[in-house]
Design a binder for these strands. Structure first.
Lengths: 184, 184
DNA sequence: CCCAGATATATGATTATACATATATTAGCA
DNA sequence: TGCTAATATATGTATAATCATATATCTGGG
């Protein structure tokens, strides 16, 4: 099953209005980092290929001091492709890849204290991430208002809500496991 | 941050005893499919490179009717590398990539009924996956007993528990969102 | 005043991942 | 009898993703 989502994610954000690669990177960070992230270099290359396919157009805006902006806009054909992809059912659940869980899975091969150390770090990382998602959740309504995306608000918030709940569940699991291992 | 986990996952499973690539694929499916999965072709290639690095050895067992088995065993150096990797703290939270969530995120661009359809399919997929994880959870203790991995049991079960809870949280979220959108 | 970080783009290299395909036999089912 | 699934390996290709690096300027904090 081929999933070329970065392309469609970029088309999606461009449906909110024209933007540069750099701005799109921030759009990722400010809204969907809990279910996708992308390297800037990958975003630039993908935008180029979207241009080649005719899904976006690009114009250059020169700035005095900073590098020129390459501003991409969605074309009609790009919008059609976006809607086509969005309408298509998702066949499979996403592949999860969590190398950290290997360290728990094979925990019996390690001293108890090392596993506990791993789990405490994980807990701390979850905590940090939770704070970020809470901020995203807090600022999203304002961003929606500012950018005239009122109709989008419930959908954007819904995905953040899932991100938050996932983190909470992981944190609870992590803390329970710490107690369990301490008692072993 | 370079994370070459498939290598270490294979070393981990080989620490339970010698196995073929085909068997390792099943080991993935029967225990950690909730946080990792790997293509058979990728497993074969990775085993070869582990052999080149001296972390495993391979011997061929010829069979009458079926293709010969390539049985891989962990070497001392492989075990050392496994322990080294397991002991090393995981720096970052895993990257999640869920293309389905894009379809929710950009849900305002679609007819309400299409989004609901997506969500219902997602719910069904979660249900299916839940059944699989429950089976894994049910059979893991038996597998541990049979393979003399008693000390591993609490760790293996812990990771499955997280997989189950993640699915449950997603299912709950999904159902709530269906109601919310129906009311819109 | 210096250093870090934000702004803005881009290329090159390497690795990881996915997908198709090939081979060959057996077992079970309809 | 014909089809599918399981057993078992392997290659070839294409794309996705990561990482390092390069350039150039401005802003803000210590």
């Amino acid at each position: 099953m081929i999933i070329v989502s970065l392309k469609h994610a970029l088309l999606g954000f461009l449906s909110f209005g024209p933007a540069t690669g750099y701005e799109l990177k921030h759009a990722f960070e400010n809204s969907i980092q809990h279910f996708w992230n992308a390297d800037l270099s990958q975003i630039y290359r993908t935008l180029e290929s979207l241009k080649d396919e005719g899904f976006v157009t690009m114009r250059i805006e020169h700035q005095e001091t900073k590098p020129p902006k390459h501003i991409y806009s969605l074309t009609e054909s790009g919008r059609a492709e976006l809607i086509r992809w969005l309408s298509e059912p998702t066949v499979e659940l996403p592949t999860v890849r969590n190398p950290f869980l290997f360290k728990v899975f094979f925990g019996a091969l390690l001293p108890k204290e090392t596993v506990l150390e791993h789990l405490r770090r994980f807990d701390a990382a979850l905590h940090e991430r939770l704070e970020i998602y809470k901020q995203i959740q807090e600022y999203l309504p304002k961003r929606c208002r500012e950018q005239g995306l009122r109709a989008h608000k419930p959908f954007l918030l819904a995905t953040v809500r899932l991100g938050l709940r996932n983190l909470e569940v992981q944190q609870q699991w992590c803390r329970e496991l710490i107690s369990e291992i301490e008692r072993l």
